[in-house]
Amino acid sequence: MEGRDGATVEKHRVHLRPATLRDAAPATLHLLPCEISVNRPAPVERFFTPAIRRGPDGLEVSFRGRRLRGEDVMVPSGLVGYVMTMEEKGEVLMGKQEALERDSDCFMEATASFNRFTLWGLEAIPGSDAKMRGALTWPSLAAAIHSQVPED
């Protein structure tokens, strides 16, 4: 099937390294109710984590002076959470020419795994009607939509 058009077909594929799924170390995740418009390392352990308090009904913390309230949310049963990143192409090691040739091979890898995360809301724990909670029921609905129907 991958005869003369093999290269073009390959261009539309991003391979996931299966070994990284097995080896991914557990990560701590927090979903914050605000947009932080950068992607970069942050001293979460220094400022955020030590400020988390466990109250009678859920967790409390403050971020940028605002009170957040949250609780742990489990990944739906039967599923695993993964943090995935696009693999660097390694242009340093390869010559420019070679990098261009290898452009079609895209790889992703799992850098961490999780089976729960902390869902934070501003002033209040996100309620049962929070979008995220709805989204977490999606896998069970999807199973029903996509499972095979019985034959007559």
């Binding site: 990560a27 701590t28 995740l29 927090h30 979903l31 914050l32 109710p33 605000c34 947009e35 932080i36 418009s37 950068v38 992607n39 970069r40 390392p41 942050a42 001293p43 979460v44 352990e45 955020f48 943090v83 961490a112 979008k131 995220m132 989204a135 999606w138 896998p139 999807a142 199973a143 939509i145 996509h146 499972s147 095979q148």
Partner: peptide
Amino acid sequence: KVFKEKHHSWFINQSVQSGGLLHFATPMD
């Protein structure tokens, strides 16, 4: 499928990730 809601971000270990996206991979007929 991607969960995407305005004004969300992730703390993943010692890093921050904007967007707050959560991707789901569910079996498809």
